[in-house]
Amino acid sequence: MPPLLKILFMRLGLGVLTLLLVSVVVFAATQALPGDAAKAILGKDSADTERYEALRKQLRLDRPLVEQYASWLGGVVRGDLGKSLVGAGANVTDLIGKRVVNSAILVLFAALVSIPISILLGSLSAIWRDSKFDNVVNIANLSLASLPEFVIGIIMVLVFATAVFKWLPSVSNVNSLMPLSGQMTLFVLPVITLALAVVPYVSRMLRASTVEVLESEYVMMARLKGVSEPRVLWHHALPNAIVPTIQVIAINIAWLAGGIVTVEYLFTFPGVGAGLVDAVANRDMPVVQALVLLMAAIYVLLNLMADIVTILISPRLRTGLR
């Protein structure tokens, strides 16, 4: 299928282009802005010219911008993200490795919990449109979607960890040296918090697309053919309704990767989000660069995957490409 391949390559190319531009933004923000990074890092100590010059050298700030960017990007491609400016100056790759694993587990759990629930709530409220169920789900979704995730998190903590019940830990200091299975309770509140923040978006989107499909002429036709109602819903309506939702699911998982910032910070969960807060607070530029680039890359990749999946599962796109 050459046309299909062509479009896939084009999407891939666009993804790479976006990533490149993202890296330029990250680089520009941290290294090329008029406010000198070395000055920003040293703060009041920047009067100390010797330390200042040394730091500039370490950050390669004394070279031309293009060269700085090229060598930085080259490092990123090779997996060499530079050395942390804080403490012993460990390799950034080593420093964030564990955090990436922790966050990945967190996001994965949150996605596994939230997506099935969203699909169920979304399709049921579309099928029972304007019913009591639909209204309750609608109001719940509206409220949850309005609340900042750290507010949801604090309420969770107040209810399940401190003020009302004392079932779960309010702090999730996962220790990567201990087996994960023993620390599952530490994940519960962050996962629930993230899931509660995602469910409203995905389920509202699915409801909207299902409602639209249920109003379509082909669903009317299926009913007038005498097709049973469950078959109309699961066979005729949902496959069509799910397609536009894929994009939203991808964006929301990507959003989870960013939304973890406040949630991890709240639960002092050792992931990339809390890591980013620390790095920004400490002005640890190489770590900031690495983490921001990682989060943006995840967004681009997930979007790309959603694009490809959408093309592959919708016959019109799959076979209609020219």
Partner: peptide, 17 residues
């Protein structure tokens, strides 16, 4: 009794063969 709609292109399910 069966029904033939006005717009066949909209009345056939795009996702099914």
């Amino acid at each position: 009794i069966s029904y033939v709609p006005q717009d066949a292109s909209a009345s056939l399910n795009p996702a099914l063969r």
